[in-house]
Design a protein around this nucleic acid. Structure first.
Length: 257
DNA sequence: ATGGTCGTTGCACGA
């Protein structure tokens, strides 16, 4: 099974690149973030014609997450499943694909450390664990992948000195990611590439991609049973090049099934 | 050099 995560930064703006990429890469499961589409504006029929079942959790101009699957898509759940009042923003969707419980996540950005949005981000990550406890178990085959807006370690940013006092690298953010690992999740890319400094996002501004000023914030987190069956993982930098790219590159993993 | 671009929407804001 080939699974990918990609923050497309507006599916409407990205459709030509998404179509081209699906045909080229032939993923079985795709987790998308920032579709920026209303619930009903998702091109369900178009993806069906390309062989994908899909589920979308959208809200309109911001956020929006989706899962595409060629290996079945059952028991979809939009939003958190922990029984608490629903998140007002469309940042989480879950479905079982090919026997794996898959979630597509768009973790809040955080903006600045003293911004209310940063507290929302930390609370959101804590709540993700409540969701997992309600929806599944760490002994199951589970993947939670998407734009975490957290660089797990200093190796995951181009120049750690430039990020002092910034979000994405703060100790509290890294701690909630470690809490997810304590729950039972493995960072699949880092497992296969312990020393590689490879990024998944580069700012559109100031030639960020050409200068490789990026961060690795798009993560494939998997329970140990899935991680053990993962064979190969890459960042698809090709998708960040060319006409009208997203500011994120897809991250791929191939899993033995 | 505290900028820069792109996406939304609508002439500002989020990333």
């Amino acid at each position: 099974m080939r699974l990918a995560t990609w923050n497309v930064n507006s599916l409407r703006a990205r459709m030509p690149r998404v179509d081209e990429w699906l045909l080229d890469v032939q993923p079985d499961v795709v987790c998308m973030q920032e579709t920026k589409l209303a619930e009903d504006a998702f091109p369900t029929e178009h993806f069906a014609e390309m062989g994908y079942e899909s589920v979308h959790h959208g809200q309109g101009q911001w956020n929006g997450v989706a899962i595409l699957s060629k290996v079945g898509l059952v028991n979809p759940v939009r939003n958190f499943a922990d029984g608490q009042p629903l998140d007002a923003e469309a940042r989480l969707v879950t479905a079982t694909c090919g026997g794996i419980r898959v979630s597509s996540v768009y973790v809040p950005n955080g903006r600045e450390l003293d911004n209310d949005h940063y507290q929302y981000k930390l609370a959101w990550m804590k709540r993700l664990i409540d969701h997992l406890n309600a929806d599944t178990s760490s002994s199951d085959a589970v993947i939670v992948t998407g734009d975490y807006n957290i660089a797990p370690e200093d190796i995951d940013v181009y120049n750690p000195a430039d990020f002092i006092g910034a979000t994405h690298v703060s100790e509290a953010e890294r701690q909630v990611l470690r809490d997810l690992e304590s729950w039972g999740m493995v960072d699949v890319f880092r497992q296969h590439h312990p020393d590689d400094k490879l990024f998944s996002w580069w700012d559109y501004r100031a030639g960020g991609f050409n200068q490789n000023k990026g961060m690795r914030i798009d993560l494939i987190m998997a329970t140990s049973s899935v991680a053990a069956k993962s064979r190969w993982t890459i960042v698809d930098r090709q998708a960040r090049k060319g006409e009208k790219p997203s500011d994120h590159a897809p991250v791929l993993v191939d899993i033995d099934v």
